[in-house]
Design a protein around this nucleic acid. Structure first.
Length: 289
DNA sequence: CACTTGACCTGTCCGC
DNA sequence: TGCGGACAGGTCAAGT
């Protein structure tokens, strides 16, 4: 799915596009996509205005004037796309080509605003979900109680980063960095990119990682995700931002999905292996066990 | 408790 | 062309 940079990009787009708008109608394909009781939807979503859009880890939070919040996880293939019948982005913008094409077969939830613009939740694989709950209860859901710190927060230090991995000392560094309770927001793309940056083999056990390596990894995680936010995220398959636009980080990726190509540092052919049950890309010369 | 594996879904790609 | 299998940005429940 969308990892931290992609969800952050969607958040920034929605902040500009939907804050202040009033919801007129909300509907979903099945209870799986949006399991809230119809009575709750009627009472706390319909007629509510959007007051804010936030992100925590890979979760999007859309705050409402009713003191309720739409909590959204895009998982692997979720998209949140805003479409207006009026052209808002200029000639040739991909958003214009979406007018009339949504909803489609992957649309799971539709929110219609009073000005006739729409927000669509599309999700091909149906792993994603939308929940409506009181804003004050959001921190109490299991995921929020478990999830680790935001790695891009200015006060998040290298020392805290290293400290958080100690609970996973006997697993691989790849499994640990993907564990949302250790650090929030890192997924398969940025795990591979940052481990390459720090020259650490993904199958190394956490307990064997030195302090110097943790420090390097901390720097790489932040650098890679900040760069990706700047590029609007990664479109590996079907990720798009709130305007329906693809992200360009994959043009800057050093190892992810680049098996058979040259390592940008040393020229060795990048290989794809399997670590922690996930496809994993490394430079076999610089990342060793 | 820490750790690994399979399940959840649909679509695409690759080899036969 | 068709078909089977592997695989895809994430997380959980169930197993060891």
């Amino acid at each position: 799915m969308p990892e931290l940079p992609e969800v952050e990009t969607v958040k920034r787009g929605l902040l500009k596009l939907i804050v202040g708008k009033k919801i007129q109608i909300a509907s979903s394909d099945t209870a799986r996509s949006f399991p809230n009781a119809p009575a709750d939807v009627q009472q706390f979503l319909v007629n509510a205005s959007i007051t804010d859009v936030r992100r925590r880890a890979k979760v999007l939070l859309i705050d409402l004037s009713t003191d309720y919040t739409l909590v959204i996880h895009l998982k692997m293939t979720g998209q949140l796309v805003f479409v207006d019948v009026r052209s808002r982005f200029g000639a040739g913008h991909p958003n214009d080509s979406l007018v009339g094409t949504l909803p489609d077969k992957s649309t799971r939830v539709i929110i219609k605003f009073t000005d006739d613009s729409h927000l669509y939740f599309n999700d091909q694989r149906k792993f994603g979900w939308v929940r409506l709950m009181p804003t004050i209860e959001v921190p109490n859901i299991d995921f929020m109680k478990r999830v680790g710190p935001e790695p891009l927060e200015p006060d998040f230090t290298a020392a805290e980063f290293a400290e958080r991995f100690k609970r996973r000392a006997r697993t691989t560094i790849k499994a640990a960095i993907l564990d949302q309770s250790v650090i929030a927001g890192v997924g398969n793309i940025y795990a591979d990119e940052s481990l390459w940056g720090a020259k650490i083999h993904p199958a190394r056990l956490v307990g064997t990682i030195t302090n110097a390596e943790f420090k390097k990894l901390y720097t790489e995680v932040r650098a890679v995700m900040n760069l990706s936010i700047e590029k609007g995220g990664s479109t590996n398959r079907n990720y798009v931002n709130a305007e329906g636009k693809k992200g360009s980080y994959m043009d800057f990726a050093r190892v992810f999905r680049r098996e058979g190509l040259a390592c940008p540092r040393c020229g060795t052919e990048i290989i794809k292996i399997r670590v922690a049950g996930r496809g994993t890309h490394i430079c076999p010369k610089e990342q060793t066990l």
